[in-house]
Amino acid sequence: MRAVLCGYYGMGNSGDEALLATLLQLLPRSVTPLVLSGNPEETARRYGVEAVPRKSLPAVWSALGRSQAFIWGGGSLMQDATSAVNPLYYGGLMKLAQGMGLMTIAWGQGIGPLHRRSSRWITRWTLQNCDGVSVRDGASAQLLTDWGIPCQLAPDPVWALKSSHLPGFANLPAPRVAVALRGHVHLTPERLAHLTKAIADFQTATQTCVVLLPFQPVKDGAIATHIAQHLSGPYEIIQVTNPAQLKGVFRGIELAIAMRFHAVVMAVAEGCRCFAISYDPKVTQIVQELSLPAWGLSAAEPLPLIPDNASTMTQQWLEHYANGEGLSDVQVRSHVDRALLHAALLSQTLAKTP
């Protein structure tokens, strides 16, 4: 069987690459993947799979015509917070696959935010006709329940990604703190200035090496460089293209300060203490589920608002650094085991294909 894998792949976002790596890890061996990618040459080289341009209609049409299954491969694909085009693109491909008679699966999804009526309509329409659906958070599961659409609820699939060692990482000075920030309209220049000073002061107080991890360099790289320029102690900006190695980095981290959703997932999955900064409901949901210390960038978030001065930030980080704890081995194992329910959905659904 051949399955077309559809997601935000080949776009330079480490979180989405981690979802693809996890999907490839969990896909039944009897299934041959064909990936829609923004950089098909790189995707093919990195994962050893066939890949085609995600925006080439002839290539996508050919891929669907040669396949028996179509899989939305994790993440917040059906949301219109970043672009109203997202539901049209991903929903359109799903409907095309369904119209061509392929087995269709919405896998590891985080549904929403869906601000527009048209986005909600197309999301409901496509999911109603899927052969299997799994979601990664309670809010998505509740929305689908309200729509009368059965689904499997399990933690984000990246919990189950097998991590590996990043060569040379152990040579960095210890202890280490990881910082994974991203650009956002609510991360104003003033807030970034406070965060930068707080990180620098935290480093001075703890004598840590700051590991800056731009998960999507085109959006995060400038922030990482800006912070690095204000540090007086050791630091390293690391762009890790191998998702398993990126997850493995957090094994050697004492504290992660993370905005990126999958930075939070990877940190806690590797037993690292984590302090989150939420810019999106998906980050807020995992923070609340795991009872992590966190700030929100918007007053609309049900979290303490990010402090308006560096000293308060530093003090809260120092408190968590000194007295906070990561998830226990039992808690991590529980989340990994439940994340494997996404694999079970794949096996059970694809086994029904003639």
Rank of each mutant, 00 (worst) to 15 (best):
L36M: 08
P58I: 11
R191M: 01
L303M: 09
R117S: 14
V332S: 09
G132T: 07
V268R: 09
D16N: 12
C274H: 04
T206P: 06
L34H: 01
A198R: 03
A256F: 07
D137V: 10
Q239P: 02
A263H: 05
R273G: 05
W121A: 13
D337T: 15
G296L: 00
V268A: 10
S232Q: 15
A44I: 10
M11P: 08
K247D: 07
S83P: 08
L350Y: 04
I105G: 05
L255D: 03
P173F: 03
L127W: 12
S163Q: 03
V4W: 01
L161I: 08
A299I: 06
T349Y: 02
R2E: 12
A276H: 06
T353Y: 15
R251E: 14
T196F: 00
L231C: 01
I257F: 14
G233T: 05
L350H: 08
A294E: 08
S83I: 12
V52A: 07
T204Q: 15
T353L: 15
P33M: 06
V268M: 06
I105L: 10
C209W: 03
V85A: 14
V85D: 11
R46D: 06
A193G: 11
S83T: 14
H194G: 05
W147Y: 04
M94E: 10
V60E: 06
V287M: 02
P304W: 08
E254I: 01
T284D: 13
S278G: 10
D156H: 07
G112M: 01
G75D: 09
P189G: 04
A205P: 00
Y321Q: 09
L161N: 03
M313E: 07
Y235A: 11
L64F: 04
V135I: 12
R333Q: 15
A63W: 06
S83V: 04
G38I: 05
L290A: 09
E289R: 14
V211R: 04
L340C: 10
Q98P: 05
G221L: 03
W125K: 12
R45H: 05
V332N: 01
S119R: 10
L246C: 07
P157M: 07
S83D: 13
R333P: 00
A258N: 12
H165F: 11
K95I: 05
N129G: 10
S14D: 01
V330D: 14
P175V: 01
D80T: 13
W125G: 09
